[in-house]
Nucleic acid binder design. Structure first.
Lengths: 145, 145
DNA sequence: AAAATTGTTGCAACTAAGTTGATTTTGGAG
DNA sequence: CTCCAAAATCAACTTAGTTGCAACAATTTT
């Protein structure tokens, strides 16, 4: 199911006019290999298992990728942002977060065309993205309880 | 716990077995008077315009109210939580946040029964809340642009 | 009424996550 | 290879919230 092999990260960086650097490539590869959205700290730790890197570099790369629409920043809960690849193989989708273990699952994209217009709000608002987060108890934590 | 009339905060606290204290009452009144979700800092500043109070007190009261389901904590964007009253007159609803001015509007509740089952995710997950956030450009910012 | 118990607030110090500005290093065009 | 704008680094800082403990207040027990 991993579609990230269809993304050529080197070419993606080039098409964005970004230099190919070790940290940028690592961030894309790590997000591409991830089964769910990751925290900046997790990304940092994976890179650090391979090479020396400063957290500022990772934060600035993530910020830049988000501004370019290459990465999505999710506000799940608490004060920690999560990041996921926004390549063409990974359209926006809802997320499920467990109350107990705090783990995040990606859900299948749902058709929201029917509720979309209602969600625009007062006339004049121009909505461009809907972020859906489902909270609850995941199957693993249910089994333990 | 029936509050078919307007919310009586003193009674609400009593029914929760909570003592009536100045700060607790102030938090409820401020959230009750707010037209949209507020940050802890904003609540703190309003209380401080009336009396001396420590931020820890406000954070602890908000935490407690959230645990009791009296207040909802919203993860809108960034690292700052927003809080809104969860009394019976204020059911859960989607929020709109403007890219530009960051202001938050409350949207009308939408019926999600159609998508609810799809949003549960893998079998075994027990979802109990859906949080919907719409991002875009609000009507005020559109006029300015 | 005094003492004990419980609940609430205050204060200082701390933490986690991210940001800023100044400086050094480097990818890759020429 | 040379060069320089772009990228990475480092220390210091900020913001939002948390923790542990002491002080205080409100009930309950004696």
């Amino acid at each position: 199911m991993d579609m990230s092999d269809r993304c050529d990260f080197r070419q993606w960086l080039a098409s964005q006019g970004l230099k190919l650097t070790a940290v940028r490539l690592a961030v894309l590869e790590i997000l591409g290999a991830a089964s769910c959205a990751l925290r900046a700290k997790e990304i940092l730790e994976v890179i650090r298992s391979r090479r020396r890197v400063n957290k500022v570099t990772v934060y600035r790369i993530l910020e830049d990728f988000c501004n370019r629409g290459m990465v999505r920043r999710l506000s799940l809960e608490g004060r920690v942002s999560h990041y996921e690849l926004a390549c063409e193989h990974r359209p926006p989708h809802p997320h499920f977060q467990c109350h107990t273990c705090r783990e995040v699952q990606c859900l299948e994209p749902v058709p929201l065309t029917r509720v979309w217009t209602e969600l625009q709000g007062p006339v004049g608002n121009r909505a461009d993205h809907i972020d859906i987060r489902v909270e609850g108890l995941c199957h693993k934590c249910r089994e333990e309880a």
